[in-house]
């Protein structure tokens, strides 16, 4: 295999560059940067959330990064007066569909592992400035397996922040999809974080190729 790329690359690169025109060259890294956000309808999201009075889907947007990443944001209702939007983010990483795509990949749109203690602290401070934040000791479980979350509170409000990475190719993910990253941020009036987590617990991915659930849903 080692020798194959050594020679193959010659033609792959040449072919790819040849298609770029004859009147001089410009750098082609624009394809690797995230495209600007585009608004989409809620129906076009690859996820369905359980009906919710408190957290309806208010708006949806989508953007792609290179040919392998698609990111979606569902902006959810926010009954509080706190700063920041309530939202569910879904990042879908597909496998490149060409050898050239495999050679030229954009930087990951999410790191793996998703968070270190340091980056998590930063993210929570950004999401919930001036609130008391606590990372839950144990994770929870939804249709797609275990996830982790943190709870932020002040005198009047409670917020939750949950994150999850789906990479199980054996059962859950279709062949074309390398990984799905979910991130959920919601502030609400309830003091009980479980109530705030209900939409995340009940969400269902609706990608073109089916994503299966984690399998042992007896616990839910």
């Amino acid at each position: 295999m080692s020798g194959v790329p050594r020679l193959l690359r010659l033609s792959v690169l040449a072919a790819a560059l040849l298609t770029a025109g004859c009147a001089g060259w410009v750098r082609d890294n624009s394809t690797q940067l995230p495209k600007p956000w585009q608004r989409i309808t809620a129906d076009a999201l690859p996820v369905t959330l359980p009906e919710s009075q408190q957290f309806p889907v208010l708006a949806a947007r989508m953007r792609s990064t290179g040919t392998v990443y698609k990111s979606y944001i569902a902006v959810l209702g926010n009954p509080t007066v706190l700063e920041g939007e309530n939202r569910l983010t879904v990042d879908v990483q597909t496998l490149p569909d060409s050898l050239f795509g495999a050679l030229v990949q954009p930087a990951r749109v999410f790191p793996v592992p998703l968070y270190t203690m340091e980056t998590l602290t930063k993210a929570l401070n950004r999401e919930f400035p001036e609130m008391e934040v606590k990372v839950a000791d144990g994770g929870r479980r939804n249709r797609y397996g275990d996830y982790d979350y943190a709870v932020a509170q002040d005198e009047a409000n409670t917020c939750v922040f949950a994150w999850q990475l789906i990479t199980d190719h054996a059962r859950m993910l279709p062949e074309r999809i390398e990984a799905v990253r979910l991130e959920y941020r919601v502030c609400g009036a309830s003091r009980n974080p479980r109530v705030l987590l209900q939409p995340f617990d009940g969400l269902m991915l609706t990608l073109p190729e089916g994503v299966l659930d984690a399998g042992d849903m007896g616990v839910l």
Partner: peptide, 10 residues
Amino acid sequence: ELKRPSEAEA
């Protein structure tokens, strides 16, 4: 001002 543009637009 509260960085909630989607709701603001609505």
